[in-house]
Simulated scan of single mutants.
Amino acid sequence: MIYFKVILRLCFALFHLVGNVHMYSIVKRQVPNFQWYQAGHVTSHKITEASGLAASRKHPGAIYTHNDHGGAAEIYVINALTGEKEATLTISGVTSNDWEDIALGKCHPDPNSGFCIYIGDFGNSGKGALNNIYRVTEPDDLSSQTIHVGSNDKLEFSWNFDDCETLMVDPSANLFIISKVSNGHGTIAQLPNSAWGSSSRVSLSSTAVVNIESGSNDPVGGDISPNGNEVLVKTHHNIYYWNLHGSNDYLATLQTPGTKLAYKDEPQGEAVCWDATGLGYYTLSEGQDQILYHYVK
């Protein structure tokens, strides 16, 4: 009887081991493989410190970008195939202390909602972070124009960190930010879609920490895929990837180890976004005459 129990335990242990290996192989197969190519050159003298990217949902082939600290309150429309600047969106009614990231998603949780560009003015330019987020509706046409931001489209928040460079929006118009810290283990906080229109600063508290490794002040950018199921977080020298498998729990998912994806190291790469299809992503470095990279499966 003793030998029989020992054999049963060994069989159970072997079954458990094989099962884990099988599950690990499934997870590994679910990580997509991307190849990069040069989509174009961003030669505009106006774009010298590109800090964020967002792919238009309304205008196929258009990408929004902006400069960080010291830059004007402007969003630049670039051609995804050439990198050429096609228009300038001047944003009025806002500050431009240190815009560090932008994101694109639904303006409201209503399924019939249009799309908005979200702007994160929360970087530490040396004068301290303002911790403001603005949203503007994607324009009907992409000619150069001025877009005014009213009080209902300004979200002010407070938290215990003095620097942030990552702004993401899910399909329900909830926002997620990640603090920028020396080891990359930034704190992840959610700003719910109900936070807009508050008459006072929204106080954020979170114990969730993004599970990446870095020897620099990171992360510097991120994006949620159009379908909400995949997440990218960028450090200075890597791009990390997560698949939610339909859970919609971004805070829990980002605390699991991220998987490194293909990345062509850039001089000072901070900007990353999914393309409009969600099948690939773009990166762009700060600096003059930089290459716009497109990564595809």
Score class of each variant (00 low, 15 high):
19 G>A: 02
235 T>F: 02
232 L>S: 13
11 C>S: 12
273 C>F: 10
155 L>Q: 03
163 D>I: 03
182 S>G: 07
200 S>A: 09
8 L>G: 01
201 R>L: 01
209 V>H: 13
60 P>L: 12
38 Q>T: 10
41 H>C: 07
291 I>N: 04
273 C>T: 15
86 E>Q: 15
171 P>A: 01
261 L>I: 15
105 G>N: 07
267 P>K: 14
290 Q>Y: 07
162 D>M: 06
122 F>A: 11
287 G>M: 04
242 W>N: 06
164 C>T: 12
96 S>E: 12
84 E>W: 00
193 N>M: 01
275 D>W: 08
257 P>W: 11
103 A>T: 15
32 P>T: 06
151 S>I: 14
182 S>E: 14
144 S>A: 13
21 V>G: 00
243 N>P: 00
157 F>E: 09
60 P>T: 11
289 D>S: 13
128 G>S: 04
32 P>M: 10
100 E>Q: 09
235 T>I: 00
23 M>G: 10
171 P>Y: 05
4 F>R: 15
63 I>D: 08
228 G>P: 07
6 V>R: 12
156 E>K: 06
187 T>G: 03
258 G>C: 09
121 D>V: 03
104 L>E: 13
10 L>R: 13
34 F>N: 02
66 H>S: 11
127 K>I: 04
131 N>L: 08
34 F>T: 06
187 T>S: 12
93 G>K: 09
27 V>N: 12
262 A>K: 13
25 S>L: 14
252 A>H: 15
212 I>H: 09
8 L>H: 05
85 K>R: 14
185 H>W: 00
86 E>L: 14
236 H>Y: 15
177 I>A: 01
271 A>D: 09
241 Y>E: 10
91 I>T: 05
282 Y>W: 06
216 S>C: 00
228 G>L: 03
257 P>S: 11
256 T>K: 15
196 W>L: 04
94 V>H: 10
253 T>L: 12
125 S>H: 13
30 Q>N: 13
129 A>G: 03
280 G>S: 08
151 S>N: 14
22 H>A: 15
270 E>T: 08
273 C>Q: 02
65 T>I: 10
50 A>W: 02
108 H>D: 15
282 Y>D: 00
192 P>Y: 08
281 Y>G: 00
237 H>W: 02
23 M>S: 12
189 A>P: 01
144 S>G: 07
113 S>W: 03
11 C>H: 03
249 D>E: 07
294 H>M: 05
277 T>A: 11
180 K>E: 06
291 I>G: 01
98 D>W: 09
143 S>F: 08
53 L>N: 10
69 H>C: 00
209 V>D: 04
53 L>A: 08
156 E>I: 00
26 I>A: 05
13 A>L: 15
271 A>Q: 06
104 L>D: 02
276 A>N: 12
53 L>W: 09
195 A>C: 05
182 S>M: 04
273 C>D: 12
163 D>S: 01
56 S>Y: 10
234 K>S: 05
288 Q>R: 14
218 D>R: 07
254 L>E: 05
293 Y>T: 02
49 E>V: 02
165 E>C: 04
64 Y>A: 04
17 L>G: 06
